[in-house]
Computed example of a mutant assay.
Amino acid sequence: MKLGIIGAGAVGSAVARLAPEYGHSVVALADSESAAIDPDGLDPEALLARKEDGEALGESDPDEALDAPYDVLVEATPTTLGDAEPGFSHIRRALEGDRHAVLANKGPVAERYEEVRTLETGSRGQVRFEATVAGAIPALSTIADLGAGNVTAIRGVLNGTANFILSRMAAEGLGYEHVLAEAQDLGVAEADPSFDVQGTDAALKCVILANVLAEGNGDGDTAEVGVRESYTLADATVEGIEHVPPSALELAAEDGRTIRLIGEVSTGSIRVGPRLVPEHGTLAVTGTQNILQLEARHAGRLNISGRGAGGPETATAVLADISRLEA
């Protein structure tokens, strides 16, 4: 398929580089300053090398990439809250042109889910967003296979930065500020880590999961009382990890437990915060690993884990969504 990629950060660049391996061509690639467009296909490696050398990605305006002859728009711009712009408008342009949109950007499906679905209903294009929840982990496709109406609850570790910090604090007895600085030196944490350590990133992912479950629970015989049409970040109860002291982790260890930033989704409830979990239990993943624990009717409890972030890792989820569009 022909791809138009908006956003040339870690994920967008990785999608562009990997696309040929998956049998796709990139006909448009845009960052915030410029775009390269070629209906016959671009050379992503050459373009990204130019960008890394400080040159412009292309000679066109970024907005022109939205009118390129692509089959699938890959929306990989940074996540924004509230109106979820400019990502939402990018998706709208694609759908109004009866073309598909695949998202790595969490904003539109966390903050304006119902509007996105309404646009999709009026289009011949589809929206897919596996990459918004857990990087390489096939969370949404697993839920789809089970049937969203059959999944009664989800909990898990959904932010690698917070998990790295907490697991290092527990293992080494170090303080939060010390481990945060270490994570920043290693590139695990951003220069401004607030999105991760305050729980916002994990909460957005939980909101997306809640929207998917609510949509499934609104269909057929599995409908449950009290399920609303869509959720936003404002509906989540969120607490971060900045105030978790080493002493709390030490006390937890004495009782055979540890602390992880856990996201929890159930009917009408979205919560994110530090939680006590068994030290050697399923949810006590270490480093930057993520894990989701699904509670499903008939199937019981399912655990899926893996790399929840990273350019190539998240790009595989984007490319998997594109493959599903071809099926």
Rank of each mutant, 00 (worst) to 15 (best):
D221V: 08
V26H: 08
L319Q: 12
A181F: 05
A14M: 15
E239G: 00
G310L: 09
E85N: 09
T200Y: 12
L251M: 08
D145K: 11
S123D: 07
R324E: 15
T282F: 01
E224Q: 03
D255T: 11
F164W: 02
P274A: 06
R99K: 15
P62V: 01
T222D: 14
E85P: 11
V11Q: 05
K2S: 13
G187K: 08
V285T: 03
V127M: 06
I165E: 06
E182P: 01
R99I: 05
R50D: 11
K106S: 06
A317E: 11
G311S: 04
D196I: 01
D255Y: 11
R155F: 00
G287T: 04
A183L: 11
R275S: 10
L283R: 07
G256I: 08
T77M: 13
A234W: 00
I208H: 02
L174E: 12
P274H: 09
L251D: 15
T237Y: 04
R117Y: 03
V212C: 01
A191T: 14
N163K: 11
Y22N: 14
T288V: 10
E229Q: 12
P69V: 02
A181Y: 02
V277T: 11
G311D: 06
K205H: 06
D255C: 00
D201R: 13
L95G: 03
A104K: 05
L119W: 13
T282R: 10
L186T: 05
I262R: 04
C206Q: 06
H178I: 10
E115C: 07
Q293E: 15
P193N: 13
F195R: 15
S25E: 12
T237G: 01
E114W: 10
D219P: 00
A14F: 02
I241N: 03
V151I: 09
I165M: 14
G122L: 00
R128G: 11
G310W: 03
G263P: 03
G287E: 01
D38Y: 12
A46R: 15
R128Q: 04
E120G: 03
P20F: 12
G82F: 06
A65Q: 13
G268Y: 06
A46Q: 14
G199Y: 07
S247V: 10
L146W: 00
H243M: 02
L186I: 03
V151W: 00
V244H: 08
L283C: 02
R168F: 02
I241H: 03
G4I: 05
D43W: 07
C206P: 00
A191L: 05
M169I: 02
V244K: 01
T258D: 08
T152M: 03
E239Q: 05
G220F: 13
M169V: 14
E250R: 15
V285E: 07
T316P: 08
E120L: 00
E52K: 13
P44R: 14
G287W: 04
V133Y: 13
G54Q: 09
L66R: 15
A28K: 09
P108E: 01
G281E: 11
M169R: 05
A8Q: 06
E254F: 11
L3G: 06
A84T: 02
L186G: 04
E224V: 07
Q293N: 09
R260L: 01
E55V: 06
R17F: 09
D40E: 13
E242L: 06
S266T: 12
A170N: 02
V197E: 12
L204D: 05
